[in-house]
């Protein structure tokens, strides 16, 4: 995962990243994006890469609680900020309510957009705890899903909101 495909000659720089409550020292060249560093240096592969230009949202993470396309954010620029990835929201033994709702409503098919979708939904519900259907649509519009037609994802987010399941970002 390098941004510069011409064969980078630049030197690595060292910095710390705070991810899901843990600190990771990183040595990487400046051109590395946050997505690549999360996936290959830190080993958190739940965040996905689906496009070249901020269009699909599969790479969505929270930066100080706000959704960011990690594909177009420099990893080095994230130092000193709190990064939350899908791995920080819940696990198989204790699913986050959004994760549970998504499964119960059939909002998961191939699953490739799912981590980014959950991150965006989480950020949306933190901004607006009782969104309308249209507000959910706009709020998730940066996350493309090709499987579901969005209906069941939007249902799940609305259901999650009505259950008051928004929890503070860990």
């Amino acid at each position: 995962m390098t941004i510069d495909e011409q064969g980078s000659e630049s030197e690595s720089i060292g910095y710390d990243l705070h991810v899901n409550g843990q600190t990771y020292p990183v040595e990487a060249t400046l051109d590395r994006n946050l997505l690549g560093v999360l996936r290959t240096e830190i080993g958190l592969t739940g965040t996905k890469e689906g496009c070249d230009d901020c269009e699909c949202g599969a790479c969505m993470v929270l930066l100080d609680g706000q959704p960011v396309n990690s594909c177009s954010y420099l990893a080095a620029q994230a130092q000193g900020r709190q990064i939350t990835t899908i791995e920080g929201l819940g696990n198989a033994d204790q699913l986050h309510p959004l994760q549970e709702c998504l499964l119960a409503h059939g909002g998961v098919q191939c699953g490739f957009c799912t981590p980014g979708m959950i991150i965006s939904a989480h950020a949306l519900l933190e901004r607006n705890s009782s969104p309308s259907r249209d507000e959910v649509g706009i709020g998730l519009s940066g996350n493309l899903c090709r499987c579901t037609g969005y209906a069941k994802i939007i249902d799940a987010v609305l259901d999650s909101a009505s259950n008051g399941s928004v929890e503070p970002t860990p």
Partner: peptide, 24 residues
């Protein structure tokens, strides 16, 4: 560089190399 949405996407698509020195 602020959000990086133009600079980083441009570099990823190979349109323009990322500058060697940045100030966030």
């Amino acid at each position: 560089i602020a959000g990086g949405t133009d600079l980083v996407v441009g570099a990823r698509q190979g349109n323009k190399r990322l500058p060697a020195s940045l100030v966030a």
